[in-house]
Structure formats: C-alpha cells, structure tokens
C-alpha cells in the first residue's frame, strides 16, 4: 500500500476506538456499542481495507444514532479511498456531509478524493471548509500539501550566505 491509500489510514475516524460510556436506566455500560463498527475501524487502521469495509458496512446497517451512522459513513469513505474506489468513497463522503455539514473529516476525505481525481476547485472548497471547522487538523494540512503540490508546485532553493558584509564583491556559486 502506498501514497494516498496509505495516507487514508490516518483518516479513519478514531472515535470508534474510544470506549463509549452511556447511561441506561441507571446502568453505566463501558465499551463499544457497535462491535462491527469498532472492529471495522480496527481492521481499516491495520490496513486490511476489505475486511474493514465489510465489517463497517455491517456496522452501518445496525448503527444506532447519528454519531454511529456518521462514524460508519466516514470510515467507509476512507476505506474506499484505501482501495482506490473513488466513486464509492465519494458517495459515502457525500452522504456523511449531507447528514452533518460540520464534519471536518468528511471534508478532509472528500478533498483527498477530489485531489486524486484532479478536481482541484472542489478540493480547495472542501479544504477551506475543513480548515474553518478544525484549523489545527494535521491530516487537513497533509491534504492541503498534496493539493498545493498538484496546483502550485515549488522547488526548494537554499542560499548559503558566508558574506561578512553585504558588499558588492560577491562570489556566487550555483548548483542544482
């Protein structure tokens, strides 16, 4: 696995890995409520995209509540990016963002899809939305970097300045 597929692992919604605690008739239950979803996320994080997708799809069918459904959609989007099925990934990202238009991971993942499909204007809009919601997200910075490399590539240029004075008699040596 390489490139964007490997990077997609970082985008799996980690929320499912955090034990869920909730109160139900004065009982406190700790642990993942939707095991398929939780195991699916684990498989995706381990790089086992197909197993992860299968479990996550099953988890989506039994998802209870908005939070579980959104986590499933987010992970399906990321999982399909991992196996380069961008149409399916886009479908799940769109469903996620229809359900919650403040889901920064959804914008992050969809921006990545658009970068991979060379639809840069759409990617830029999603990146702007994602960064507005979560300005410090590392993954958004990485996707932004991929977007910039595709649209505004740059070449590093290092100047070594040994001058003691900024005088006119300068020897300049260049090397590429």
């Amino acid at each position: 696995m390489s490139g964007p597929a490997a990077f997609a692992i970082a985008l799996i919604t980690a929320v499912l890995l955090i034990p869920v605690a909730w109160s139900e008739e004065s009982k406190v239950v700790i642990g993942p409520r939707n095991l398929d979803l939780s195991d699916g996320a684990q498989e995706l994080l381990a790089g086992n995209a197909r197993e992860g997708l299968e479990l996550t799809l099953r988890g989506l069918r039994s998802a209870q509540g908005k939070r579980e459904k959104e986590a499933a959609l987010s992970n399906l989007c990321a999982g399909y990016i991992m196996i380069d099925r961008l149409d399916s990934a886009l479908m799940y990202c769109n469903m996620l963002l229809l359900s919650n238009d403040r889901h920064w991971r959804g914008y992050n993942n969809r921006a990545l899809i658009y970068v991979m499909r060379e639809e840069y204007e759409k990617a830029e809009k999603d990146l702007a939305m994602g960064q507005e919601i979560n300005p410090n997200a590392r993954t958004l910075k990485v996707v932004k970097g991929m977007f910039l490399d595709a649209t505004h590539p740059v070449s590093p240029n290092i100047i070594i300045d040994d001058r003691k004075r900024k005088s006119a008699d300068v020897s300049v040596k260049e090397q590429s």
Binding site: I159, R163, S171, Q175, S176
Partner: peptide, 14 residues
C-alpha cells in the same frame, strides 16, 4: 531525493 537548488555566496572577507 528532492531536487534542491543551491546558491553559495561568499565575499573577499572570508
């Protein structure tokens, strides 16, 4: 592996 352009500036005071 990245191509880097390098410029070295020196003067007579070195």
């Amino acid at each position: 592996t990245r191509v880097t352009r390098i410029t070295h500036m020196e003067d007579a005071s070195s």
